[in-house]
Every structure is written in structure tokens, then in C-alpha cells.
Amino acid sequence: MARDFADRDALIAYVAAQFPDAAERDANVAPVRGGRAAAERRLDAIRPREYAWTRNELSGDVTRLSAYLRHGVVSLGEVRTAAIDRVNRRGDVRKLIQELAWRDYFQRLYAAGGDETIWEDQEDWKTGFGPEDYADTLPEDIRLGATGLPCMDAFIAELRETGYLHNHARMWLAAYVVHWRRIDWRPGAAWFLAHLLDGDPASNNLSWQWVASTFSPKPYVFNRENLERYTAGAHCRTCPLLGHCDFEGTYDEIKGELFRPMPWDDASAHRGATNGKRAARR
């Protein structure tokens, strides 16, 4: 295949012509550039202390290295070295290194268990529902970003247009798909894999399973307050649904609405009592 292109537009036109099915599925092109030179610019910009403080906020100081890590344009070890070079004590780099370790962990699980690990439920669901209760296809309104929920539709548009979503937005969107819409995590995970530049079967699918509860002790949910906080109100401030959207309520109220009681928790108040703090703690 060709290697010489006058400019990026020529490259894009060539790839679209060579892979018409991919372009037909979605013809967006990410602003992010592939390649080592682009990856090194990101590597140079790592700020481990700021990362630890702000990484849960959508405007936080995240590294945006995931697509380069996924494709080995940079290695985990290189990111670690770059991060450690910028700090004087372990505490300042611990959070970033732990996130790098998550990738190592998922890759080890994939190596040990193969496709069975990443495409099969690792554990039973802890939502009070069984696998048969979840739809096995992704509805068009989700696929196209026309759910009517401004926050979710904005995340979906960003996913399709840029091939990237902040981790927190991934968790909210995955929780919306699986728990609010009661759709199996597999079509959701496959949808992300089709769009994400960093789409990695192990990290992606096991994280969807973590949200679903088939690879965690409890399902992940959020409420509007949590989303508003970490988006600095970007979606809620102007939302016509403010005050009565699907995500209003306390964690206990939301869990009461979304899930059936599990055999081991007769008191609904007890259910996942710490869940609401999960994202905040991260």
C-alpha cells in the first residue's frame, strides 16, 4: 500500500478509498495524530502531580496517551520513566503508575484467559437480573447519540467524532447503557471498540464488565450530582431536563429503581453504600 502522501488530507482520502466499509460505518477522522513524534509530544507534557489531583475531572490533566499505549507507540515503561523523571517522591507519581498497572493487569488477564476472559461473563451479575434480562443489541438512539439526554448524547458524539472519551465519561456512558437501558455489556463494549482509537479488547471489555458487575463485587452507577461535579456543570447547566432527568436522586434511590434486591442484602439502604464515593475517591 502507498507510503507517500502530499498531506494528511491525501492520506485520509487514500485510507477511506482503500477501506470503504470502515468509512461507511463512520467517516469521522480524529484530530489526534498517529505516530511516535505525536506520542513524544504527549510524553513530554505529562504532569504526574496534576494528574493525581485532577484526573477524574473531564477537563483534568490526563495524559491522552492511551491510543499510543494501546498500539505500543510508547511502552508502559517509557511512560513510567517520563513520569518519575518529573517528581521527587513516590506519592506524586503513585496514581499514574497505578493506572499504568491497570493496563498491565488487563493484558495479563487476556494472556491467561484469551477470548473467553474478555467476552464471557467473569462472574454472575449482581443487579438482581440474569444475563437473559439484558438486550443483546444496541438501539439506534444510542448508536447515533439521539437518546434525548444531552450529557449522554454529547459523550456519544465525542466518541464518534474523536475516537476518544475521558475515562469518567466512559464509565457514565457504559453505566447508562447497561443499567439504565438494560443492555448487555457485550454490544456496548463492541461499539466502543469500533470507535475508540485506544480500543483494546482486554482493557475495554473488562472495564465494561466492571461497570456491569460481572467483574466486580457490585454494579457501577452514578447520579446527576456526580456527573455535574466532574463535568463542571457543562451539560447540566443548560439541560432542559434538569431536576427530572434519569440520573436524579441519591445512590440508594437510583439503585432501588435500577436493580432488584440481591439475596444477601435485604436492607436496600445497605446496598452498595460506598458506591457513591467510588468515583470521588478515585
Binding site: 507510503r3 502522501f5 492520506l11 485520509i12 485510507v15 477511506a16 477501506f19 466499509d21 470502515a22 468509512a23 460505518r25 463512520d26 467517516a27 469521522n28 477522522v29 480524529a30 489526534v32 495524530r33 498517529g34 505516530g35 511516535r36 513524534a37 505525536a38 491510543a67 498500539h71 507507540v73 474523536t162 475516537g163 463492541a190 471498540l193 469500533a194 470507535h195 475508540l196 482509537l197 480500543g199
Partner: peptide, 21 residues
Amino acid sequence: LLDDYGTTLKRLVFLYECLLE
């Protein structure tokens, strides 16, 4: 594999840019 995963254009452009280096 690209068909199985329903890969979209943006991923292929990203990969191609990596390959050109």
C-alpha cells in the same frame, strides 16, 4: 479482524500515521 470489530475510519488513519514513521 477489521470487519469483526467494525473498525471505523479514524482508527485506520491513526494506525496508518503510525506506520508511516
